[in-house]
């Protein structure tokens, strides 16, 4: 009797795995395999071109990070970027969603217009922005029109990273706006009615009903934002033509990893170590975020 059950269970498990196999195969080949291989690479000095060699070096790739000036600059740039972009895009997304949910006319139209930047490929977006950021481009002309000072957005190390920040906040916020919008529609009207009876005005309703109710969603948005911004690459790559310049001002961690992995010869192992370190940094940041905003629904 026992044997029969186990046989049946075995057959069932077998057929489930058979059905799962395409997905498992893809997962193993393209996600789990590369992750394990990257960890392996991080502990080796790797020469891939010509005579392929893997020399075990223990933690020396990680020790190198501590002495690498460019790694420090890259990390600082990335952290600066995260600290500014994540709160800005979250706030902007919330405000956009709230205005779209207020029941104004032409809501659907604006929803589409707001969402458009997210649909555009980031490479194309960057190129378009580079035109606008040009010394004689749209943005400087508008600034001049209103009597503000103009900037050399692409060439000045002090503003180049800010230029990327502005662009990214603008293009990423709408995506999170959609998430907020979905969550906003879940808030029961009775809560607002109750608040109104208590004499709350619009702002108070927003602050004391909407924002707390959205807390779990905010937590999600911030975590996704953190992960996304720490991985900033394409925009700064295109901005600086791959160099991270001017004066290392747009050098991000992922761009540095790319440079070590594909531009320099024989530093693939070090690049993997950097990638590993970045993964840990993102993990820590995410855990910290979760600790600060305990993920429990209030209702």
């Amino acid at each position: 009797m026992k044997e029969k059950i186990s046989k049946k269970a075995l057959r069932e498990a077998g057929s489930s795995y058979l059905l799962l196999s395409p997905t498992l195969f893809v997962l193993l080949l393209f996600i789990i395999g590369p992750i394990l291989f990257a960890v392996y690479l991080a502990f080796h000095k790797v020469e891939l071109l010509g005579i392929t060699s893997f020399e075990f070096v223990g933690f020396s790739n990680f020790e190198k990070i501590l002495e690498d000036t460019r790694a420090k600059i890259a990390l600082w740039n990335t952290v600066k970027y995260v600290i500014i972009v994540v709160p800005c895009q979250t706030l902007l997304a919330l405000v956009l969603a709230a205005t779209l949910n207020a029941g104004l006319k032409g809501e659907k139209f604006f929803r589409i217009v707001y969402f458009l930047p997210t649909l555009t490929s980031s490479a194309v977006l960057t190129l378009i922005f580079m035109w606008m950021y040009n010394q004689n481009g749209l943005i400087n002309n508008v600034l001049k029109l209103f009597g503000f000072p103009t900037y050399n957005w692409l060439g000045d190390p002090d503003v180049a990273l800010n230029a990327i920040m502005i662009m990214n906040i603008w293009s990423t916020a709408p995506f999170f706006m959609v998430i907020y919008l979905a969550a906003l529609q879940d808030i029961p009207d009775s809560l607002y009615e109750a608040a109104e009876l208590d004499g709350a005005n619009t702002l108070q309703k927003f602050w004391y009903v909407t924002v707390p109710y959205l807390k779990p969603v905010t937590s999600f948005v911030v975590i996704m934002g953190l992960i996304g911004t720490f991985q900033l690459f394409d925009q700064s790559y295109i901005f600086s033509k791959g160099s991270g310049g001017p004066n290392n001002s747009t050098l991000t961690v992922v761009l540095l990893i790319y440079q070590y992995a594909f531009k320099n010869l024989g530093t693939m192992g070090y690049a993997a170590a950097l990638a590993f370190a970045l993964a840990i940094i993102i993990l820590v940041a995410t855990l910290l975020q979760r600790k600060f905003s305990k993920e429990e629904s209030l209702y």
């Binding site: 991270g244 310049g245 001017p246 004066n247 531009k263 320099n264």
Partner: peptide
């Protein structure tokens, strides 16, 4: 040379811009 160039270009700009 590729490493040397990357570092030179990055920092020379800051001198060129007067920083």
């Amino acid at each position: 040379l590729p490493i040397i160039v990357n570092n030179f270009n990055n920092q020379f700009v800051s001198a060129f811009l007067g920083e």
